[in-house]
Structure formats: structure tokens, C-alpha cells
Design a binder for these strands. Sequence first.
DNA 1: CAGATAACACCTCTTTCGGGGGAGGAAACA
DNA 2: TGTTTCCTCCCCCGAAAGAGGTGTTATCTG
Lengths: 241, 241
Amino acid sequence: MRTKKEAVSKSDRDAALSRKLSGAGTGRASQRAPKKSRISVLIADDHTVVREGLVSLIRRKPDMSVLGEATNGREAVELWKQHRPDVTLLDLRMPELDGVSAIKEIREHDEHARIIVLTTFDGDEDIYRAIQAGAKGYLLKDVPREALMDSIHRVHAGETCVPVHLAAKLAERVSGETLSSREIDVLKLMAQGKSNKEIGATLFISEGTVKSHVKAIFAKMNVISRTEAVANATRRGLIQL
Amino acid sequence: MRTKKEAVSKSDRDAALSRKLSGAGTGRASQRAPKKSRISVLIADDHTVVREGLVSLIRRKPDMSVLGEATNGREAVELWKQHRPDVTLLDLRMPELDGVSAIKEIREHDEHARIIVLTTFDGDEDIYRAIQAGAKGYLLKDVPREALMDSIHRVHAGETCVPVHLAAKLAERVSGETLSSREIDVLKLMAQGKSNKEIGATLFISEGTVKSHVKAIFAKMNVISRTEAVANATRRGLIQL
DNA sequence: CAGATAACACCTCTTTCGGGGGAGGAAACA
DNA sequence: TGTTTCCTCCCCCGAAAGAGGTGTTATCTG
């Protein structure tokens, strides 16, 4: 009746994450830096104006070039496979295929693919999942031009690049308690306004069991009511209402 | 103890809204079209890449020019007063001063200011408030280039420009029931996970009164639980959690 | 392998929610 | 002037929610 959804353990995941973050800001050189004169960049964002802005910014740089533009995650993966860009700029929430899934698919083809997530969402869970999936950088769309360009250079050079305030959120997430997959199931149904009984019926467990899960969720998220839990989870990017 | 927060009545507001929307898509000519050869555009968005994209798109057009860029609502109002642009492109959620407030301030100086809201939020309440404040257009950031340019031209010519799918949402909002200001107060506190008793203590009213408001909110929003109400309200842009 | 940890399931008990009403006062609209 | 809407408060009552504690089973950890 029960299925193990998370194949890797928490400690395994966090150890991997530490390894990924260890290179941040240290200036550690790439193990195999591309020899091309220009850094080729793939852009993936469903917002026309954002794509336009990135193209404009990159075209202005003599040491960079735009390799292609994707309007969703599926397209991003296809274009990546075709052109193998040096660096990929990727939004998180896109139609067809979301950013995290796109990162995972790309990294199935190349473990060392250099991907920067450029998005508006700053929830700790969003950041965590992106880095966990293999993103080398995480930037918000209000990032200044220079910082964006610097990040592209750094990621291209093999570094990991996450601004301090986002890294702090990430640290919070890592140090804080993790919701189990079952608890997330319950949380999602809670967010739909379902009662404990309805949740139980959906998940084929008793109402009492649902209550114990809800209790665990409250304790881990440090909230008192289900409404607060849903609001919190939405803000953190744990669920998208 | 009680203050009247909404000075204008519902019927007044909706009548005004109907007047504003009546010109949409009819091609009605402006009453006083500017005589300059180029349409001067003011850009206001806190996202660097979006501003960059808009500048890039507009610079490409021979009949348009960028008059200035603002990174928040306060700056947008200042720049508008300085340069009096033909058309203003404005994001909704910005630091310092939000988009709706900026629109209101600008229209205090010029009743006929031509403002287009360009944002990612498509909640009916967001759209309603923007149009209500006096926006002549409402576009999402995934709008194609041509549609954006067309909208700038149309708004400059004095038309109102709201895409059909957004206009439909707006119609839903207008036809649906309106929450009173007090009900919104309660809803906001509900979203923070507060109990009826706590809400009562915060608003200096009895718990019974809170329950009455909560009941009214459920009925108007057509939901059963407070969690559902908060999720719904957030999605619609009624509250920002 | 023993011991700890965590997820999952289930049980009672008290408090709070939420549905069903009703009612009076203030302000705005006709 | 009457009508409508909003805000305030009240009642009852069944159904949830939320706070306790128990036990079983995997999976790390030493």
C-alpha cells in the first residue's frame, strides 16, 4: 500500500548539495573550460519582453552570443540538445515543461551542463529544487546588468553563483525540517480546501491518519492552522496554489 | 469607531468602468491626438531584463522613442511629471509604490494620461483595479511583440486595449459579488491563519461578528472553508499573501 | 546487530468552525 | 420617505479541526 517515493535519503541529498555549493565565490577554475572565443548562451523564458531583454543585453557583449531562444521548457531541452550552448538561462515557471524538469532532462545528457535559473520567485523551496536539480546559478529578474553578466562569466568558468540573500534562504531550507512526500500530498489537498475526511478518502487512509500528518506539517512548518500552513507553503514555493 | 472606507458607491464605480471599456476595439479616434511624429514612451518595471527588453523593442520602431525608465512606482510618477510621455508602460507590483497607486497619482495630474499595465498577474481583481484606476490597456508579459506594439499605437490613439481573455475575467469580476471593505479586512487576517477570536480581537469586534463576516465571505466567493477562501482570493489577486 | 530515527497508521478528547437562522442601527439611494 | 447595503451582535448545534498519546515498520547509524 505504501510506496517509497524518495529513493535518495536526506543525508545523501544534502551532502550532494554541499558539494555543489562549495565552489560558490571561491574563484575555483573550471575543470574543462570551453576554448571558444565567445560564450554561447541559450535563453528560455515564456515572457517575450524578458527574452528580448536578455538578447539585447548579450548582443551588446563582444564576448557572448545568443545561440537560441526557447519559449518553454520542452523547447529549451530540444534547443539545448541541438546547439549545446556554453551557458543556459532558464526561467522556472514555463508552460509545457517547468524549469526544474528541463534542468533534469538537460543534465541527463550532460552532467556538466551550465545552467543559470533566472526567475521572479525567491521561495526557499524554489531555490532548493533548482540547485538540487543541478542549476549552477540562481538569479532574480531584478538583477542589475553587470551582476547578470558577471554570473554568466562565472558559471561559464565552472563556478557556482548564488547571491548571498538567496543563499541565506537556501541555508534556511537545508537546515530546517523537511516535509515527507506523504505530508506534501496532504498539504496539496489541504490547499485545495479539502477536509481531513476528503483527504483521507483521496489518499485511501483514515481521517485520523490525515490528522496526524496535518499535525506533523504544523510542527515542521511552525504554524498553528491549516490556513496558515497553506499561505506559508505557497510563499515558500513548496506548493503552487 | 467605524470609518467609511469606500467613498464611491458600487453603482458609480461600475458605471465608470463601463464607460472606460466602451471604447475597446472600436477604433474610436482620440479626442486630442498628440501631433509629435514619434510616440514617446515611459517604462516602469523593477525587473532589469524587462526594462531592457522594452527599450530594445521600442528603439527598433522608427515611430517610437523611449523617454525614460523607472524602477519603481515613485520614480515612475516623478519621471512622468518631468517628461509627460505619450504612453506609459507600467508593471503592477513594484517596490516603493505599486502600479495601481502610481496610475492614480499620475491621473491626478492628467485625467487623460495614457497608461498600459504590463504585468505577469492575470487575477480578475488585479485587472479590475488597474482599469478602475485608469489604465487604458492591460497586457501580460508573454504578449507577442506585434501585439505589444499594436497596443501602444491603439492606446496612443485614444483607444482602450484589453485582450479578450483578460476582458472575460474582468467581466466575471464585475458581474460577480463584491466583498465589502470589512470583509476584506477579515479575509486578510484569515490568510494569516488567525482564528475568529483573534480576528475579533484585532478588529475590536466580537467573535460572533467575525463569524458573520466569514459566512458572508464564503457565500460571496462560493467556497466552504477558510483555507479554500484564502487560496481563491490569492489566485484572484484579491489579497497578496 | 542493537539502537536511533522517521514515516505512517490509528485512537480519544476538547475546542473551534461553519451552517441555519434572526435583529438592530447607520448610511446611502431613490 | 422607504429601500438597500453594510456592520454589528445574538442564538443553536452538528461537524470538523486540532491537541494529546500508541504502535508498527522501514531505514540509517554506530
